[in-house]
Write a protein that binds this DNA or RNA. Structure first.
Lengths: 187, 187
DNA sequence: AGCTTTGTAGACTGATTAGTCGATTTACTA
DNA sequence: TAGTAAATCGACTAATCAGTCTACAAAGCT
């Protein structure tokens, strides 16, 4: 059954974001998931493998969400705008995954696992930025710097929305937020 | 002696940023600091108190660095510019503290301790932003949103500089980075 | 139906951990 | 100098943890 496996991942996610990786014993994960510890270690050889699996699966969903409907936009600005709102939507709809991702990204765990791989997955955003620069629409600065800056801006905006849930449906506020993002980018 | 206490804090900082909070045993901290575990627990009642102390002391130094020489600037833009370069300088000069601060801020630990207190300490930046808005220099959006956004932008820029140390002395690059920051703010 | 593989269970273990305790030394005060 | 308080030490403990082991149950295959 793949069902138990999924239950374990979900239980782990919840416990990790509230307690942290190391403060969450495997026994508690199993207990919360309603399975035995033996079952947990049957599906994941080690606790670390469980964490990494959770990270990679979370990232897969994130990447897919980010690129959704981007092709349907005509202009570079439209595409980047789509990415922006995709990112907001993902964070709002998957708050626990969002938290987990932030936590993992800033923890020393990340250095053990594929850090370079991270950027490769966001390649399509790099490509958008590069195109924008060639059209003289975006700032002519190192692309990594541009990427990190908007990533940061986006993180900040997301954090704000998480702390002020009433704003999530405030169209005007979201437009202002997009302006912050776009002004960071545009040359 | 306060010397041992300092040694403990320094050892803890190094171990925390490389191993994480929970993956760092108190025995190892004591050993690295060259003291006995009893000494560690004499200075800090619990491991959590040690972590919180480290966080608060780190933050104190950070805040002080951020506000340095800001008064000497005439304009709002000048003041915010000073804050920007102060932040960069702090991160460059205290990379371990910077890492620790990021790690702690994104960990579930933060929820246990004074989260609201965080913003209070940055009050002077809020004041600057408010003044700038009143002079129609900055974007007329919720001040929390503005704050989180530039905080995020700054984080991104810092991360970039950490990954590309050769750029740290590149004046032109730093000016470009400041432009990213300023364009996020200005209305 | 037999046989093999895979999934599930939970008691158990060896290692590790945060924190304690009583003994000893150092620093401070009168 | 005598006496007290604070600092240091490290062996020790009770609890907890990641991961193992053995047994049993489904499921798939021929």
């Amino acid at each position: 059954m793949n069902e138990k496996r999924q239950q374990i991942l979900e239980a782990a996610l919840k416990l990790f974001v509230t307690n942290g990786f190391h403060a969450t014993p495997t026994t508690k994960i199993a207990q919360t998931a309603g399975v035995a510890t033996g079952t947990l270690f049957h599906h994941f050889k080690t606790k670390e493998e469980l964490i990494n699996t959770l990270y990679l699966e979370t990232k897969d969903v994130l990447i897919q969400s980010l690129s959704s409907q981007v092709d349907q936009q005509e202009t570079i600005k439209g595409k980047l705008r789509q990415v922006f709102f995709n990112a907001i939507r993902w964070a709002v709809n998957h708050p626990e995954h969002q938290q987990f991702y932030d936590q993992f990204s800033n923890s020393p765990f990340i250095s053990n696992i594929t850090r370079e791989l991270g950027h490769q997955r966001f390649q399509f955003i790099y490509d958008l930025l590069k195109q924008g620069q060639e059209n003289d629409m975006l700032k002519p600065i190192p692309i990594d710097l541009l990427f990190e800056a908007i990533q940061g801006t986006l993180n900040g905006i997301t954090k704000y929305l998480m702390d002020h849930p009433d704003k999530i449906t405030d169209e005007q506020c979201l437009e202002s937020a997009f302006a912050l993002y776009w002004d960071t980018l545009k040359g």
